[in-house]
Structures are given as structure tokens and as C-alpha cells.
Amino acid sequence: MVVVPPPSATALPAAPAPAVYRHAPGDPLEKFNRHMYAIHQKLDRAVLRPAAMGYKHAIPSPVRGGVRHFFSNLGEPVVFLNFVLQFKLHSAARTAVRFILNSTIGVAGLIDVAKGSAFELPHLPNGFGDTLGYYGVKSGPYLFLPLVGPTDFRDLLGSQADGLLLPLAVGRPFDRLEYAVPKAVLTGLDARAEYDADLKALLDDALDPYATMRSVYLQDRAGEIAALKGTSADVSMPGDEIDPAAKGARASATPELEDPLADPAARPVPPSTGPKPAAAPELRDPLKDPADFRPVAPVPPAADPGAPARR
């Protein structure tokens, strides 16, 4: 099998947050979060992962899949509502049809018939955290919580609202512990088991797993919300013009992308004037080569063979 190489790199024990730097951009609670991360890792090693792998090996795959689909299907009303709140009526309708199909011929959601080639209605993720982001609510500080994992203030609030919809709108049995506890345990174990390979590939190769996970989470969420806003890939991107001379003028949703990598000793870069294609947010960060910005000297430094001249 292929494990897509994680965006992180490289191994070794976690690097402790150094004294000199207080927190990374977007993570004002870094000290607290790193504590929580350490607690979570201990819990994971001692209980979560062993239990999840036990669940995976003890329960046949079709049964686990059925349980996964069952709970996922009960989440579709939340997805539907959020598409409506975002006035994405086509996706809302697809989600509604999907929910009806899976709840009926899919035997109360146990079988994902809607996804198959007959209907081609795969699950579309959405939630209140997405709706908040869609309407411009910033993520707020990043949070890492034991058992919850990586999140932020907006998404934590959103996921609480997601979880309240059925209990409030329908009531029994969704507001009972007899439902909520098995749901939390089964979906938690299943997700942990399903993501195990990816998580291992990501974190085993990280020098600083905490920072790697934070970076991936924040970038992933920013990408999902950009996609809902239609600012990804194939649609035009408002406000994506970055003037290379205006350093840090525009805060990016992904804190790691904020730094345009301009050296203080940089020679001034002429602002690019050509028309900018609208697509490809991936090209937003100018990615200026730090080696390029040396004081203009009569002789180019020989020690810098790799730097292409960027104009």
C-alpha cells in the first residue's frame, strides 16, 4: 500500500518549546496546548491506540463499516442544515437525498448505498464550524485537547453545536447517555484505528510532532473553508494579490504562510505588475528565497550558488 508522505518531515523526540520563543503565530496558548498534547499522547499510548487496534482486529470490517455509516448518516441532518445556512442548496439537496436513500434502502444508514455508482452521492463534510468560517468568523486561538485532538475556538464551538442539533431537535434517544456514550466510544475508536497509518506517517517523521500536527490542522481547515467559499482551485480568489513589497500586509488564514520570507537586508523587490491569474491559492505565498535578499554588492557572493535571480 501507499502511504502518502506526510507534509511533515523527519523523526526524533519532540522538541521542547524553547525559552526564547513564546509561541508560534496562531497559537497563543502554545504552552497549555503542549501540556495537553503530552497528556493526550500518554493516554493514546496507554489506552486509546491499544483499544482502537483491538476494536479493529476484533470486529470484522463490514461490521465496523456499518457502525461508521450508521453514525455518519445521523450526522447528515447537520450537514444539510449547514449547507442551507450557506445557501448551497444544490449540496443541501444532495445531502438530503443521500440521507433519505441511506436511511431507507441503506437499512437505517448501515450501508452507504448513496455513494455507489447508482447514485454517486458521496458524503460531503460540513458543520457549524464551517458555517462560522464561511461567514468570516476567524478560527481564534489553536487548541489541542486530550481526546478531542487538534481544534480551535471556532471549531470547538462548532462541533458542540453539531452535537446538540439532534438532542435538541429530536430529543430521545439522542439526548440520552445510553446513546451518547456508545456513539462517542465507537466513533472515537473507529476513527483512531482508521487514521492510524496516516497519523503514524505524519508524526513519526516529525521533529516536533505537536507543531507538525498544528500546522497540518490549521492548513487543512483553512483549505476546507476556502473551498466552501469557492476561493480554492477553480474559482477566482478575492484579495489574493500579494504585493511582495508589502511585507505581512495581509494576514493569511494559515499562520505559517504569513511570513513572505523577505530578508530585512533585502534589496527592494519591484512589485510584480503583470496580471495575476485568479486560480491556484497554492501560489499565493511568494516564497521569496532568503538567499536572494542580500545587500546589493558589486560582486554577487560566490557562496550562494543555488539562488536563482527572482524578479
Binding site: 521542547p16 524553547p18 507543531a211 487543512d220 476556502a226 505559517e256 505565498d285
Partner: peptide, 21 residues
């Protein structure tokens, strides 16, 4: 990855604490 997760950005985050300390 997924059109949004930059390997450079992730590595920058991954390396920054060690570089700083």
C-alpha cells in the same frame, strides 16, 4: 496535499522550535 496543506509550511512549523532553541 488536498490542495491546501503545504509541505514547506508544515516543515517550517516542524523545524522552527528546534531552530529557535
Amino acid at each position: 496535499y488536498k490542495n491546501s496543506i503545504s509541505q514547506l509550511a508544515t516543515r517550517r512549523a516542524d523545524f522552527s522550535a528546534i531552530l529557535a532553541s
